[in-house]
Design a protein around this nucleic acid. Structure first.
Lengths: 335, 335
DNA sequence: CTGTTAGCGCGTTCAT
DNA sequence: ATGAACGCGCTAACAG
């Protein structure tokens, strides 16, 4: 039924080793022989079996990607970066959603390892001891992607979330704002939640502005929770003159709430956030936000992984990509 | 180095066949033996090699997914549906972006087939003869996902794009609009472009409204092209009283352009579109749009594929999922 | 430059 | 219920 390397060999009148050589572009084949083999391949419609090749060579040219949720635009962008670079180096990607749930993460790591991936890209919640254990149970290279690792034991590429938040809030402060509300993500989330909150706090502290609980609301990254938080802020006696939101979506929720209350952005209240998703340039006013290079995070981590898989010597295994404030129209000087 | 089934056999004092049986849940093993084997597995940290298993069993429990662009929210949603169901049936997903480019599509189909995937989910541009040829070159089941196939030769699941557009435009007409502009996608795209335009046309024709070229602009699905198209419409002598946009993004571009011209949505101009992306509920006014069940398209096509891979008899192989108009705030009765 | 020969790790008869 | 032996399709020495 299926045509194998052996059939080709017979058809071309050579040995299977020779067929293997031409298929794998080994230079040690006479051009004429090569031609004969190619013709036989063509005639028989031979297609190499990558599984057999994987078993014999102990390489699958496949890498596993653990991702929280591919339907989340942020991660999808990372995934595209990963796939583009993988493709460039002739790797394929096995994609697994794990929703930042530890059990699911450990589980997919194991099935990925069973599938003999040549490398692993991990994007998830916190990296626990259990994760490390699962990683160490095999010798395939791993790189953490947009994921923090307290133990700092594994190669990783990410941005500096704390600094990103710090910079955003500092922009507000440099515009004269001193009454700044924060719409945070859950503080349990080390990167998008806790770190950004820390940046907010540090920016205030360095400016000598007291951090008060009433100016902090915790949301769930989504539009609706931005609305909810903003409704709260608007009813405050000392209403903030500026809002720092941990995500664009929450920022947009805040903007709409402000506008619905017949206040203006940025004239009455300024808004800044972090993400720079497509939506940031699809609101009125255009949203000032700090851009995270998500595509690049994916691309760079995949590139790092190729080096690791290639057993190249990589000195720096902790890569922090730069972020950038995209100044648009949602921040103004305080009145 | 790596511990194999053979090592486990020795450690447990049984044959490798027995180990294979317990690993694969074959009932023909004495409980006591099973226990011994499990203990040996635990002790040695044995992890089955899926590649070797794939070679021996001719099954990889892996399916290939060809997708236009995972960083596009619409497709990412489909992908999540696919992965969830795949996961449920213990399949893994190899994900390949092909950007709707024919050559790239054919190329990834072939590498996926080389990897011996048990099935293929294809999401792309048009399905040409060359695609069919590539599909037919192997006997693995294929299902088309959100992709039209003129030849109608391959199992597929999609929505009725023409009808979706028709319904949207009809809602406009039933609100008294007779001067309706369309912001279309490229007409070369059979589903999102051409079919939606056809639906627009048919709705007008059935209402006895002439279809005039001046009321049709072709965009590229994006926000910016919605802006551009709307600028054109606004300067028209007989300005449309309603706009049908082929995507939410273009619709939002139109809305903002209308508002920037100091006109109101929907009081002055109504806007409707199709997609029901998250953004539809993140604009003011909230966007009325027809919802496509993208997650379901992914889930249903993956489910169909599992049946096909399982050699179950499936009668209907052309599944059309229902769409639904989500009425929000961007459409009003004509003044 | 080419062919021979072993495995790679596992599923699967076929015996027992 | 268990074991022996073969083969899945290919790569990788090694020999010539």
């Amino acid at each position: 039924m299926t045509v194998t390397i052996y059939d080709v060999a017979r058809e071309a009148g050579v040995s299977m080793a020779t067929v293997s050589r031409v298929v794998n572009n080994n230079p040690n084949v006479k051009p004429q022989t090569r031609k004969k083999v190619f013709e036989a391949i063509e005639r028989l419609g031979y297609r190499p079996n990558a599984v057999a090749r994987g078993l014999a060579s102990k390489k699958t040219t496949t890498v596993g990607v653990v991702i929280p949720d591919i339907s989340n635009a942020i991660f999808a962008e990372v995934a595209r970066g990963i796939e583009d670079i993988a493709n460039m180096y002739r790797y394929n990607i096995i994609l697994c959603n794990a929703d930042k749930k530890k059990d699911k993460e450990i589980s997919v790591i194991n099935t990925l390892l069973e599938k003999q991936v040549d490398g692993l890209l991990f994007m998830g919640g916190t990296v626990t001891q259990e994760h490390i254990l699962a990683f160490k149970s095999s010798s395939v290279p791993i790189v953490l992607c947009a994921t923090t690792d307290d133990n700092n034991a594994i190669p990783a590429v990410d941005i500096d979330h704390e600094k990103a938040a710090f910079d955003a809030v500092q922009l507000l402060i440099s515009n004269g704002h001193r009454n700044i509300g924060m719409i945070s993500g859950t503080l349990q989330d080390p990167a998008n939640g806790y770190a950004r909150f820390q940046g907010y706090k540090r920016a205030l502290e360095e400016a000598g502005i007291p951090v008060i609980d009433d100016h902090i609301r915790v949301g769930n990254y989504r539009y609706e929770s931005g609305i909810e938080a903003m409704k709260y802020f608007i009813n405050l006696a000392d209403k903030p003159t500026a809002i720092f939101a941990a995500t664009d979506e929450m920022a947009i929720g805040a903007i709409h709430t402000i506008q619905d209350a017949n206040l203006r952005v940025p004239d009455d209240i300024s808004v800044i956030s972090v993400d720079n998703s497509r939506m940031a340039s699809m609101v009125r006013p255009l949203l000032t936000t700090v851009a995270q290079p998500m595509y690049d995070i994916g691309a760079v981590s995949m590139r790092l992984l190729t080096k690791l898989m290639n057993k190249e010597n990589v000195e720096v295994t902790k890569i922090v990509l730069p972020h950038e404030i995209i100044v648009r129209k949602s921040v103004a000087h305080v009145k």
